[in-house]
């Protein structure tokens, strides 16, 4: 048997298999931030405010500083609460003569919440946690561990 027959020879298929295995190893190693690595938009700290209408006192009590927030629809993180400012809900109604009535809703609160999250700003909008789009005027169902809220995004910094 000649020595030429025993020599291990690599062809293009072997090289491809090795490259695929290396790519898989890199993918597993960076699996948690591969989207961020590939994205041209860098993650920054984003402060935003949102408003909750007619929240009862029980659900208001769940909103405390540093409470984690998430999107009910996507499950993506929406950061943590920085501050909570409640005021008694005031409803605007009209009397039969057309005059405006501002009516307080006892036991219910309109709440302005300031929150901070990691995210990035791109030409197509502001995304929290790489996936939750927020824009002023947009409605979002925001959840904590024990409650859900219908929120309107007011501002983004």
């Amino acid at each position: 048997m000649s020595s030429a027959e025993n020599r291990v020879r690599f062809n293009i298929l072997d090289v491809l298999i090795v490259l695929i295995i290396i790519a898989l190893i890199i993918g597993v190693f960076f699996r948690n931030n591969i989207v961020e690595l590939l994205s041209p938009d860098k993650s920054v700290e984003i402060t935003y405010t949102f408003e909750l209408k007619e929240v009862d006192s029980t659900r208001l009590s769940y909103l405390t500083q540093n409470t984690p927030l998430a999107s009910r629809d996507s499950g993506g993180s929406m950061g943590r609460i920085v501050s909570v400012t409640p005021s008694v809900s005031v409803i605007t109604e009209y009397a039969v003569d057309g005059s405006i009535m501002h009516l307080e809703r006892s036991g219910y609160y309109d709440v302005t919440v300031r929150a901070v999250a990691r995210g990035y700003k791109s030409d197509s909008g502001v995304f929290l946690d790489g996936e939750v789009l927020i824009a002023p005027g947009m409605k979002q169902y925001i959840i904590t561990a024990t409650a859900v809220y219908e929120a309107i995004i007011l501002s983004i910094n």
């Binding site: 009209y94 009397a95 003569d97 405006i100 009535m101 009516l103």
Partner: peptide
């Protein structure tokens, strides 16, 4: 809702 007038109206 009582819409009779702004002064007397309310829930």
């Amino acid at each position: 809702l009582n819409r009779s007038s702004a002064s007397e109206g309310g829930y």
